[in-house]
Amino acid sequence: MIEIKNLHKSFGSRNVLNGLTFNVRDRENLVVIGLSGTGKSILLKNMVGLIKPTSGSIIVDGVDITKCSLAQLRETQKKMGYVFQEAALFDSLTIYENVAFGLKNLSSMPASQIGKRVTECLAMVGLKSDIEKLKPSSLSGGMKKRAAIARTIAYSPRYIFYDEPTTGLDPIMSDVISDLIIHLRDKLQITSVAVSHDMKSAHKMADRIIMLYQGRIVFDGTPTEAESTDNKTVRQFVEGSAQGPIEAERTFK
């Protein structure tokens, strides 16, 4: 389980996260929604240890990663995987080398079994082994995202963090990625935290949704509750309306 307690993050005088407190339960798909620039990705990067919070605690399986030693942090990070918004596959490496990268560094798998595991993980995300020798630049956006998920699941993390998993994909590919995230939870018992703007995908893949607004949690509930809530801020976001309490920037007349 991951426990977030009173998490604050500031950049200079700008407070991005203002005291967030919530838990991520085991084997649930938690989706964090919110406006662009509201700190969703910052929250995710704090949770995985890429950014240090200004104050507060992030407790992963009993280890507070904001206060633990570097060795403990490295050990805890082995349980976590991160799928980046633009996939962040290493340009200079082939897809095979990308997927094998985490296996070599984070697992004790013998070299002789790495090839088999890479093919298995690519198959798990619906990619054929004939792309193994290609460089990331040869793949489409959807294939890159799936290859990035294969790279992450290869070393069997307990938690996977997805930064905008469906952004930039066509509706069908978005649905495929949503199905894949659900499939990984069911098949591999992976706990997922995803940040997204895409309400259709969020509704499909989430067991629970939290909404961030102005650095605070304004909603925590199931997708069905998000659809029927009386909270006008949440309703406006879920419905994607320009009218409502969330002030949209309008420079046109």
Binding site: Q77, F84, A88, L89, D91
Partner: peptide
Amino acid sequence: QIDALYTLG
């Protein structure tokens, strides 16, 4: 990709 390196140990 630099952040990805960190997350991959």
